[in-house]
Design a protein around this nucleic acid. Structure first.
Lengths: 346, 346
DNA sequence: ACCTCGACGTTATACGTAAAACCTCGGGGT
DNA sequence: ACCCCGAGGTTTTACGTATAACGTCGAGGT
């Protein structure tokens, strides 16, 4: 093996395939593009395919994208992938995208990803459209008005400039929680709320308060916390240790906070659900990993991604996007029960 | 508003900028590319920048990629993003990539993402390199030998055709677990092992067995389980309910399995850690969400991604990749304690 | 004998960018 | 008076693909 200059390890192009098959580059493009019926004979087509395979030909996507003016790439803007909910949204979106020959590139919002401030550059390729969670709306910046179709996930129906919208029936979910706990007999509540300012959490809070207001004799106190177990535990501990009659139920904006609330209860010597009911939201894997398992609201995260991608594809295709919001369901598990008999009534 | 044909809402190109600034397209490219020193006067450069800004010019990345023959895009091949570990690996990789103007596109392995069998297409753009977890090695297929630089994460040092490798010192981690439990007095172990066939799990098993063999009077039984809480619980329940002397410690390949083992213990009326010690691996958020908090081995997941991306960048740059494996540390928490006093000795 | 037409290709072009190669002009050295 | 040179540009080309526009040729109709 004389190690002279490498024989240029450059990838084969459609022209190389053409040469090998004894046809023109155009014919290669036609055959491999699948639109050769009536333009190239079956025998020739087979020869081309064979040559392409033997050379290990892969079309240069940059060239194709340039030629076609589309990239078959969507950008998904989410707060952070370490949040299981968004990992699942991505999974759903990527699956539908793949079915249509699309790719999904992620733009986790800035605080999660360091100094990358340019969402366009993060793609490394031009984009055909954007799907964004309302929780990452702040990271949108110049994305809006960039002329790209924008699909918003779980966002305020009031805000504008959106090509399509995929929403969860969050309000209904929270109503189910309220009814569940009221039905068990609870009257004194704490709402352990996410400190994140976003449509979806605003709805949770508003709906809970509205639902509880309908029933006389109820009280609810709202406590905000950052979205992690530790913060949830601290916030819940403070609330539970506060003077005055103790709440019998803690309604959390998220399973993560609920896990924190459960730990707080245990530290204070309270049993869940006997002394205190706790409910979560999202039905993450966490919900069935903790003890007791969390009563929570199952959100079809993958479906959100799927519908979001489908909506974007529809918009790109000038079709109307399928409207309607996705239903959600309460999953009653071990963290909720009737309040203790000795609980002082309000 | 007469709704005639739209005035072609086409994105401005560098030629449009050139026209607006009264220069040639080449000058625009030079100025915006930052290599104009001594070729274009400062005044002209300023005019170009102004025009570009006013037109809202964004370079067409497909064209740039075609021209340069590089895409500044890396593919990250992982089993599934819903696994927090890999979400964190992605986060780290994306952060380093962003610092260097690179993008990271994901290829979650097939069972997670449906019918997309072509990793190349999933990118929607040609790739400069690939970073792959050994846990997703099965999905690699044609990626190998495609002539792309390949960086493997946590993989067998023996396998070949790899441009660089980033490994965790998994063996040391497992040794720490063994020493911790042996030091507490445990002698009868169960190894709740991941059923996934991959280098990293093989090392965990082998190291644990080796470490325990060093101490006379120890026994260890290996039980495989799929990587979810439910499967872990079932497997652990079977083992704990089996006849013969009960193990005093369950060493798990993963925090998820450990959470399952804890639930199994509780169902059987065993207290953790009083009656049974349980250890995890990875230190996921889950580890501090459950009660008691898990004794586990913290893996610097983000760093794995960072080093992986840095290694790929080095390879692309013909620099040597920084070698060495990342250290890991035992985090002793509430799920491990000395065995019960009445535990029958082997 | 001539025209038509379909089957089977080929040639030419454009996509938007980066950069190599090339111009032009005025000033300074000899 | 001549050459050279650098500053400040411009013209041109190539990247690899998809496709519109254009040939060619033999069979079949009249």
């Amino acid at each position: 093996m004389t190690s002279a200059a490498q024989p240029a390890p450059t990838r084969p192009t459609s022209r190389d395939v053409a040469r090998a098959a004894g046809v023109s580059q155009a014919s290669v493009s036609l055959v491999l593009g699948g639109k050769w019926r009536g333009r190239v004979s079956e025998a020739t087509a087979e020869r081309v395919r064979r040559a392409a395979h033997e050379l290990g030909y892969r079309p240069n996507l940059a060239a194709r994208n340039l030629r076609l003016g589309r990239t078959r790439t969507a950008l998904l803007v989410v707060p952070a992938l370490t949040n299981e909910f968004f990992a699942r949204v991505y999974t759903g979106a990527a699956a539908v995208a793949a079915e249509h020959g699309f790719g999904v590139v992620l733009y986790p919002s800035p605080d999660g990803i360091g100094p990358a401030r340019d969402p366009f550059a993060s793609a490394s390729a031009s984009l055909d459209g954007v799907i964004a969670s309302s929780m990452a709306a702040g990271a949108l910046g110049e994305l809006r008005g960039a002329g790209l179709p924008l699909v918003m996930l779980d966002s305020d129906p009031a805000d504008t400039g959106v090509a399509a919208r995929v929403n969860l029936d969050i309000a209904d979910g929270m109503r189910q929680v309220a009814e569940h706990l009221l039905g068990l007999g609870h009257r004194r509540f704490v709402h352990l709320a996410s400190a994140v300012d976003s449509w979806t959490f605003a709805v949770r809070g508003r709906t809970l308060h509205d639902a509880l207001r309908m029933v006389p004799g109820t009280s609810v106190r709202t406590v905000p916390a950052a979205l992690d177990v530790h913060a949830g535990r601290i916030a819940a501990e403070h609330t539970l240790a506060a003077p005055g009659p103790r709440p019998t139920a803690i309604v959390c904006d998220d399973d993560i906070l609920a896990a924190g609330a459960c730990k707080a209860a245990r530290r204070l010597g309270l049993r869940v659900p006997d002394d205190l009911s706790v409910t979560g939201f999202d039905d993450l894997a966490l919900a069935t990993a903790v003890e007791p398992e969390l009563t929570t609201v199952r959100l079809p995260a993958e479906q959100v991604g799927e519908r979001g991608m489908a909506a974007l594809l529809a918009v790109l295709d000038d079709r109307p996007a399928e409207p309607g919001s996705l239903p959600v369901h309460l999953v009653a598990r071990g963290s909720s029960a009737p309040p203790p008999a000795d609980a002082p009534h309000a």
